[in-house]
Amino acid sequence: MRRSKELIEKRKEFVTNYVTHNQSKQMKVIVNELTEMLFLSERTIYNILTDDENDY
């Protein structure tokens, strides 16, 4: 199934904002919360975060 580019960008934005607002927590805890909220794998979340870092 193809995902729209808009949906992918919104998801990336949500993940990065969530990580930014919860920096006081350990990354593992943040990733677990995101997997439960967004039904994404840990690998997908880490890929979003590393891909976002490479964009800058």
Results as ranks from 00 to 15, higher is better:
Arg43Trp: 09
Asp51Cys: 01
Gln26His: 05
Glu6Trp: 06
Ile8Ser: 13
Ser4His: 10
Met1Trp: 13
Leu49Asn: 01
Glu53Leu: 14
Ile48Glu: 03
Met27Ala: 02
Arg3Gln: 04
Ile48Thr: 02
Asn47His: 10
Met1Val: 10
Ser4Tyr: 06
Asn22Leu: 10
Arg2Lys: 08
Thr50Gln: 09
Asn54Pro: 00
Met27Gly: 01
Leu34Val: 07
Lys25His: 03
Met37Thr: 09
His21Gln: 14
Thr50Glu: 04
His21Ser: 09
Thr35His: 00
Ser41Glu: 13
Asp51Lys: 11
Asp52Val: 03
Glu36Asp: 10
Asn22Cys: 03
Leu7Tyr: 13
Met27Asn: 02
Lys28Glu: 12
Gln23His: 09
Arg43Ser: 14
Asp51Val: 01
Ile48Asn: 06
Thr16Trp: 03
Glu53Met: 04
Tyr46Cys: 10
Ile48Leu: 11
Asp51His: 08
Val29Phe: 06
Met37Phe: 02
Thr44Glu: 15
Val31Asn: 00
Lys28Arg: 08
Thr35Asn: 04
Tyr56Thr: 02
Ser41Asp: 10
Gln23Leu: 11
Lys12Tyr: 15
Met1Asn: 08
Val29Ser: 06
Leu7Phe: 13
Leu49Phe: 02
Val19Glu: 05
Glu53Ser: 06
Asn17Leu: 08
Thr50Ile: 03
Thr16Arg: 15
Phe39Cys: 04
Tyr46Arg: 13
Lys5Asn: 06
Glu13Phe: 14
Gln26Met: 01
Thr16Val: 15
Asn47Ala: 05
Arg3Trp: 02
His21Gly: 06
Val19Gly: 01
Thr16Tyr: 07
His21Val: 03
Tyr46Gln: 05
Glu6Ala: 14
Arg43Tyr: 14
Arg43Ala: 11
Arg43His: 11
Ser24Ala: 08
Leu40Val: 02
His21Ile: 08
Leu49Ala: 02
Val15Tyr: 10
Thr35Ser: 13
Val31Ala: 01
Gln26Ala: 06
Gln23Cys: 04
Glu13Asp: 14
Glu42Lys: 15
Tyr18Ile: 05
Val31Tyr: 00
Leu38Glu: 03
Leu34Phe: 05
Lys5Ile: 07
Ile30Met: 03
Thr20Pro: 00
Met1Pro: 09
Leu49Lys: 07
Glu42Gln: 11
Glu6Cys: 03
Tyr56His: 05
Asp52Gln: 13
Val31Gln: 00
Met37Val: 06
Thr35Met: 15
Thr44Cys: 11
Tyr18Glu: 01
Arg11Thr: 15
Asn32Thr: 05
Ser24Asp: 14
Glu6His: 09
Thr16Ile: 15
Glu6Asp: 11
Asn54Thr: 05
Asp52Lys: 06
Asn32Gln: 14
Arg11Lys: 15
Leu38Ala: 05
Arg2Gln: 09
Val15Cys: 07
